[in-house]
């Protein structure tokens, strides 16, 4: 029942998303065909585009036409690179996903563990120090952090490459070291967010009656923290983490640009500068879809962690 409702609501959201993305194209001033043509404005190209997308027909028909193409995997043609957009995304997306995954892993390891420590040491010097670091992590712009790290770690100490990207199929070690700095930079913000959420969730759980019960049972401290508290505290944190992952995918623009990582972020920046509109449109659509899927995954994780939801009880 509820699963069906979820799927239905996802379909509706996707429909709205596609309409929004399509509407962007309509809202831009000027002739759509000209916009889609990008830099190449020869009459033949424009005529070809007009015909291909049925741009001379009414807008709803245009939408149906467009969505039909999207559903069959035809996201249009990049005028700049002379490649199909679908192809382009398929080659760039794995890079960004790897980057975002590494960033998220970093953020989870750092954010959750520091969050736990801060909660256990609540209102002590340690906690205040951690809070300060967290605020810094939230407020430091990541391009600045990126440049700083490039200067220090890559240029000064020469520990890691400053920029570039190596495919994992060529050399996994080099691939990881090329993405290490960018993922640290990208993950800092999320780490700070997760830290704050973990801290407050842990604090709440540590004050719960069942933690008092666990203590009255004589459970050792670490057992209480990891077996009783953490699982309950992670329920909200997981949801935040999954949504942040979507943020990472879409928010890697600056980081990829600073480190010249050839991912989706760099693609969208290049495409915007080059007025490669079909690519921009497709990237927005794909990123939006990711958000929605991640939302679903977050609910799934919630389901696994909380038996009350799993068994259809009232949470």
């Amino acid at each position: 029942m509820r699963l069906l409702q979820r799927i239905a609501s996802i379909l509706v959201t996707l429909l709205l998303l596609s309409i929004l993305v399509f509407a962007l194209q309509q809202l831009l001033p000027g002739d759509t065909a000209v916009i889609l043509a990008g830099e190449d404005r020869s009459p033949e190209t424009i005529a070809a585009i007009t015909e291909k997308y049925g741009l001379d027909r009414p807008v709803p028909i245009q939408y149906l036409h467009w969505i039909g193409n999207v559903l069959t995997g035809d996201l249009g043609q990049s005028m700049r690179l002379n490649q199909s957009v679908a192809n382009l995304i398929l080659t760039k997306l794995p890079v960004t996903i790897q980057l975002a995954t590494m960033a998220l892993l970093f953020a989870i390891v750092i954010g959750v563990s520091i969050g736990i420590v801060a909660a256990l040491k609540a209102n002590t010097l340690v906690d205040h120090f951690v809070g300060l670091i967290g605020t810094l992590g939230l407020s430091v712009p990541n391009f600045w952090l990126g440049i700083l790290l490039i200067m220090l770690v890559a240029v000064q100490w020469q520990w890691l490459p400053a920029s570039g990207y190596v495919s994992p199929f060529e050399d996994l070690g080099q691939n990881l070291s090329s993405l290490l700095l960018p993922s640290l930079v990208l993950g800092t913000h999320v780490a700070a967010v997760l830290m704050r959420h973990t801290r407050s969730a842990m604090l709440e759980v540590l004050n719960a009656d069942y933690i008092r019960t666990a203590r009255a049972k004589g459970m050792p401290g670490r057992h209480i923290v990891f077996r009783h508290a953490l699982r309950n505290a992670l329920v909200p944190v997981v949801t935040v983490g999954a949504l942040e992952f979507g943020q990472l995918l879409g928010g890697s623009v600056l980081t990829e640009f600073v480190f010249t990582v050839p991912g989706i972020g760099k693609l969208i920046v290049d495409s915007v500068f080059n007025r490669d509109f079909a690519v921009v449109q497709a990237v927005v659509l794909v990123t939006g879809m990711f958000y929605i899927v991640l939302n679903l995954l977050a609910d799934g994780a919630h389901l696994l962690l909380d038996p009350r939801v799993r068994h259809g009880g009232r949470p």
Binding site: M1, R2, L3, L303, V309, R310, H311, G312
Partner: peptide, 9 residues
Amino acid sequence: AGGGWFGRR
């Protein structure tokens, strides 16, 4: 309403 992810209620 019926509830539960898999309609157990």
